[in-house]
């Protein structure tokens, strides 16, 4: 059941995962950058089906996590992604989404964690092929 962010946004009535909503909000802001958006504008970009307070809550949560920066505009704040430097943004994105339940299970990691004894076993199997100096 793979789906992209847009199909997640396409079910505005249904409940969605907190991480998914944060990701959608972040996409909207990233597409709008460098223009900062107010909660009302973000809500409109998401299709307007979410309540204003949900959008504000999500934005301030992302702001608390230092994913977004904000500047006062009129009576509200306008938000924009904190960093465009790819590595930093990706890492923050990961931190945001790491709270999803069993997220580890859907990510295909190249290597699992080594258990006790695994390291000796690897060195025994690969011998000189492994370069311990690196």
């Amino acid at each position: 059941m793979p789906a992209n962010a847009h199909s997640a946004a396409g079910s505005p009535g249904g409940r969605r995962a907190g991480g998914a909503l944060e990701a959608e909000v972040l996409t909207v802001l990233r597409n709008a950058a460098p223009q900062a958006l107010t909660p009302g504008e973000v809500r409109a970009a998401l299709g307007g089906a979410l309540s204003y307070s949900t959008v504000v809550t999500t934005l301030s949560r992302l702001h608390d996590k230092n994913v977004l920066t904000r500047t006062p505009r009129g009576r509200a704040f306008a938000y924009t992604p904190a960093a465009d430097e790819p590595g930093l943004a990706a890492r923050k994105m990961r931190q945001v989404l790491e709270n999803e339940p069993d997220r580890e299970a859907v990510l295909a990691r190249f290597v699992d964690d080594l258990a006790a004894g695994d390291e000796q076993l690897l060195r025994r199997l690969l011998g000189a092929d492994l370069d311990p100096g690196q």
């Binding site: 059941m1 789906a3 962010a5 997640a8 991480g19 998914a20 069993d102």
Partner: peptide
Amino acid sequence: WRRARTLLAAAAEAACLPGTGELVVTDD
């Protein structure tokens, strides 16, 4: 329910990762 939620969130994450290419390099 849990797995459907997580896969959806992962798909959203994949779409949100910076850049347009398949590979994303994080500075870590």
